[in-house]
Nucleic acid binder design. Sequence first.
DNA 1: GGACAAGATGCTACAATGTTGCAATTCCAT
DNA 2: ATGGAATTGCAACATTGTAGCATCTTGTCC
Lengths: 163, 163
Amino acid sequence: MLQFHKQTRSPMAASRSRPPPAPPAASPAQALIAAHGRVTRTRVAVLDSLLASHQPLNHDQIAAELAATGEHHDRVTVYRALDWLVEQGIAARIAGSDRAWKFEAVRRGHRHAHFHCDTCGRVLCLEAVEPAIAVALPEGFRLEQAELVLRGACPDCARNGER
Amino acid sequence: MLQFHKQTRSPMAASRSRPPPAPPAASPAQALIAAHGRVTRTRVAVLDSLLASHQPLNHDQIAAELAATGEHHDRVTVYRALDWLVEQGIAARIAGSDRAWKFEAVRRGHRHAHFHCDTCGRVLCLEAVEPAIAVALPEGFRLEQAELVLRGACPDCARNGER
DNA sequence: GGACAAGATGCTACAATGTTGCAATTCCAT
DNA sequence: ATGGAATTGCAACATTGTAGCATCTTGTCC
């Protein structure tokens, strides 16, 4: 659980009106982004959202997060920021049970399964589930990633009884 | 406008007038559908396509299959037929790497992994891959289905070298 | 075989989720 | 501080799927 992100925004806002002398050690998001390319307002804000969330977010949820900060971020720019983060390996794109992509910050060396709730549509990261995936892939395939996808009802929805 | 579908349906017509004693004369698709509800032109055609395919098909590919038979099938009706087949447990809906659903006929008791090719977008069923999925799900979750999703390059695309 | 009611179809709109093209703006290495 | 490339913002478009509703089919009962 990482719930630090609010204060990362203020140095950024200040830097727009007047470049501060030396705020080098910025947020983890800024550091990550700087290591891969240009640091921009929207990229930082989007990655902040992803890092602060303990579950994958779709574009809508991210937009809501950004709106809550009071800044305006263009819809298309957010899509492009997400594309870029995925391309850089900073974020991962996972297919939800609705037809919208969900995104999560990549934790290196941290394998976990995803649980898709059919009732509420959320995707939960099951940190504790380290699946024993023993795959014998036929000749010719080049494996890039293996993921265990679980479907069903999350605790909240299962408790409420419906199916 | 429906000249061509007659031949597909003739065994059906026969079975309606007089149920054949020996084997289930109607196509497997018709039998499956009849066991769950109304047998209609589009449902049969769609399920035939799924049964004939060795890999999951998206709506576009199914539409192409249907068009090849010379019959016309409305876009919306095909969607609804697919929804119905999934609802009845005859077909399964799986999320592709693009944002279109893919569908496959359900083979009972036949677990297999899916390989998503990032290059050509196809989803291949890996019949030989019987993943050892040992999941210890936390309390509260109700598991409905577990699926192993593999991503990378399929043999065709891997051979052609690009990434 | 024929009539009937529930269910399925085929339109046409509409909704949700991205994507493209391009001029204007921003980032950052000089 | 400045210049050029990367990024943004906007509007238009593309893809994939749904909703509403009048009409037609299917399966059943006589």
